[in-house]
Amino acid sequence: MVRLIFIVLFSFFTMTANSQNSAAATVNSRATIIDPIKITKSVDLDFGNVISAFNPGKVVLSPNGNRIAQGVQISSTFPGNVAPAEAIVNHGNNKYSISLPNSFTLYSQEDPSQILIIDEFKVDPTIGETLDVLKIGATLNLEANQPSGFYTNSSGFNVTVSYN
Rank of each mutant, 00 (worst) to 15 (best):
residue 54 F to L: 13
residue 146 Q to P: 09
residue 91 H to C: 02
residue 138 A to F: 06
residue 137 G to H: 02
residue 108 S to R: 04
residue 124 D to E: 10
residue 47 F to G: 10
residue 63 P to W: 05
residue 116 L to F: 00
residue 107 Y to G: 00
residue 2 V to G: 10
residue 135 K to Q: 14
residue 111 D to H: 11
residue 83 A to F: 08
residue 66 N to G: 06
residue 117 I to K: 10
residue 61 L to Y: 03
residue 164 N to F: 10
residue 125 P to K: 11
residue 134 L to H: 10
residue 20 Q to L: 13
residue 87 A to P: 03
residue 100 L to G: 09
residue 55 N to R: 06
residue 22 S to E: 09
residue 19 S to D: 07
residue 43 V to E: 15
residue 125 P to F: 07
residue 132 D to P: 09
residue 152 T to W: 03
residue 2 V to N: 15
residue 160 T to C: 00
residue 14 T to D: 01
residue 47 F to W: 05
residue 24 A to F: 12
residue 6 F to V: 13
residue 138 A to G: 06
residue 122 K to P: 00
residue 2 V to Y: 07
residue 66 N to M: 09
residue 164 N to Y: 10
residue 105 T to K: 12
residue 160 T to P: 00
residue 48 G to S: 06
residue 34 I to D: 08
residue 39 I to W: 04
residue 93 N to E: 14
residue 102 N to W: 02
residue 68 I to V: 15
residue 150 F to Q: 11
residue 87 A to H: 09
residue 155 S to F: 04
residue 83 A to W: 00
residue 148 S to R: 03
residue 79 P to W: 08
residue 16 T to M: 15
residue 59 V to N: 01
residue 134 L to N: 06
residue 4 L to A: 13
residue 76 S to T: 15
residue 157 F to C: 04
residue 125 P to I: 10
residue 101 P to Q: 09
residue 115 I to S: 09
residue 6 F to I: 13
residue 130 T to H: 11
residue 91 H to N: 14
residue 148 S to H: 08
residue 81 N to Y: 12
residue 30 R to M: 11
residue 57 G to D: 08
residue 107 Y to I: 02
residue 137 G to T: 08
residue 66 N to T: 15
residue 113 S to M: 07
